[in-house]
């Protein structure tokens, strides 16, 4: 089912003093996000992926075209809070998203703004904390947590608004490998177990491998899209646009080019070992 639909979206930032930014950030883009899917938007810095993310919950409004969220037009000001609580947006810097100096009070911030009754907020906060495995930290101060933990609190703060979809704008860019794993497994869990639609925006291709569908953006346009398998098979296209592919995929791609008989390119180390064993045995 179609959940978010982006139709002929174009966007450019206002000219800023002398520096006229004439180039559009997003050009005539069409995209659908299906209910319940795990979509990954991949692209390097300046590809327009973060700008697109901010369109999903109406933080930015289209210069041209339309964005519909669950049937609601994001340009409709009256629906602003409905849209923002339907599509939650998690940002890059975990430090700058937390409002309160106690974890559980921070998570309550969203539902409090929505006017949810006290008893229900308490319930939502506890559920959200459990969903991100941070229940034991409910009374901690955010500045004493690790980056990965802070980002999970930020996610819980969004979950407490009970959105149908979460958009995460490079949530792992500032984290160490451990924090990245924590965050990725948390959002995978939210998608699989809670049925929340996830749109993950990232430049790490190893995170994209776990998605149901990958959209690659470049220069404000969609370069290619499909399942991770389909997308990462296009090694040369990705490389020519300065994007990485998993090392497991790259080695098999190179060998294939050399004439080695490899049918499907693997995405992770285990399938890569299987493929190479087949070849080398």
């Amino acid at each position: 089912m179609n959940f978010i639909s982006v139709e002929n979206l174009s966007f450019k930032y206002d000219s800023d003093g002398e520096k006229l930014i004439e180039t559009s950030v997003i050009k005539n883009l069409n995209l659908r996000v299906n209910q319940g899917e795990f979509l990954c938007i991949l692209g390097h810095n300046g590809s327009g992926k973060s700008t697109l993310a901010k369109h999903f919950n109406g933080m930015l409004l289209p210069c041209g075209g339309k964005v519909y969220v669950d049937g609601m037009d994001t340009a409709d000001e009256k629906l602003c809070f409905d849209i923002r609580s339907t599509v939650g947006l998690v940002l890059q810097n975990p430090d700058n998203q937390l409002v309160a100096s106690v974890v559980e009070e921070d998570i309550a911030f969203g539902p409090e703004n929505l006017g949810v009754p006290s008893a229900e907020i308490r319930e939502r906060v506890e559920n959200a904390l459990k969903a991100v495995d941070m229940y034991d930290y409910r009374n901690h101060a955010p500045h004493k947590l690790s980056g990965g933990q802070k980002q999970r609190i930020a996610i819980a703060g969004i979950i407490a608004m009970e959105p149908k979809c979460i958009v995460l704008d490079e949530p792992t860019a500032m984290l160490d490998p451990r924090g990245r794993n924590e965050v990725i497994s948390t959002i995978t869990k939210l998608n699989r177990e809670y049925g929340i639609t996830v749109v993950l925006i990232t430049h790490y291709m190893d995170e994209a491998v776990k998605a149901d569908r990958v959209v690659v953006m470049d220069n404000g346009e969609i370069l290619t899209q499909g399942t991770p398998q389909q997308v990462f098979a296009q090694v040369d296209l990705l490389k020519s646009h300065c994007l990485d592919v998993p090392q497991a995929t790259e080695i098999c791609h190179k060998l294939k080019k050399l004439g080695v008989d490899i049918k499907t390119l693997p995405l992770d180390e285990n399938s890569c070992v299987d493929v190479l064993m087949e070849v080398l045995r």
């Binding site: 939650g88 947006l89 409002v99 006017g115 907020i121």
Partner: peptide
């Protein structure tokens, strides 16, 4: 940080004290 925070607060439907409830 203030700009980021303002954005994050807006994403969480902050719109001043009106109609706001409290957990505690």
């Amino acid at each position: 940080r203030a700009m980021d925070l303002a954005m994050a607060m807006e994403c969480r439907c902050y719109h001043g004290g009106e109609g706001r409830t409290r957990m505690k």
